[in-house]
């Protein structure tokens, strides 16, 4: 249903935006393949503002077409990638970027993934250090020597396939 709903949203956009077409139109393509490749790369980072989370490279909306043409005009005028992005942000705001810039507003957004990973890792490490320390020695009593352990491991892996028979 989720995808279907995205499809719904798209269909609405299509039916409102009249002439249905697909993303990049033949007449938009730049003559220089290197510049066109840059335009495509940039288009994937830019949002079609009237669509639901689509890049202008994917979108069929007329606005996306205008933006694609704008990006190509800037590239043709000799702008660097950075300048094209800055130009669009100055004009349409940060909303146009599909990858938000790292600034106080988006601090949490960018930091949550690494913090969860590191925090989780540290928590696990501390739990791992705290827990076996006390009871492990008490329950087993005698420790196995490395040789015994590897023999046991070998035995266990030999046993494994037979587990159904038991």
């Amino acid at each position: 249903m989720r995808r279907a709903l995205a499809a719904c949203a798209l269909a609405v956009a299509v039916s409102l935006g009249a002439p249905a077409a697909f993303a990049v139109q033949p007449d938009e393509i730049m003559v220089d393949p290197a510049k066109e490749a840059r335009a495509r790369e940039l288009s994937r980072e830019l949002r079609c503002m009237v669509c639901q989370n689509q890049s202008i490279d994917d979108s069929e909306a007329p606005l996306a077409r205008d933006l694609r043409i704008l990006v190509r005009e800037r590239i043709a005028a000799g702008d660097s990638d950075r300048q094209v992005i800055d130009f669009l942000v100055a004009r349409y705001g940060e909303f146009v970027l599909l990858k938000p810039r790292f600034n106080p507003h988006t601090l949490l957004l960018w930091l949550v993934p690494p913090l969860v990973l590191v925090g989780g890792g540290v928590a696990l490490w501390r739990l791992g250090r705290r827990r076996p320390a006390a009871p492990a020695a008490a329950t087993t009593g005698a420790h196995l020597t490395p040789e015994e352990e590897s023999r046991l491991a070998a035995l266990m892996s030999e046993e494994a396939p037979e587990e159904r028979r038991t």
Binding site: R44, S55, F95, P100, T106, L109
Partner: peptide, 11 residues
């Protein structure tokens, strides 16, 4: 805050 940002595929 009323600020609009987008988070998409590149992120």
């Amino acid at each position: 805050t009323g600020d609009k940002i987008s988070v998409g595929a590149p992120f």
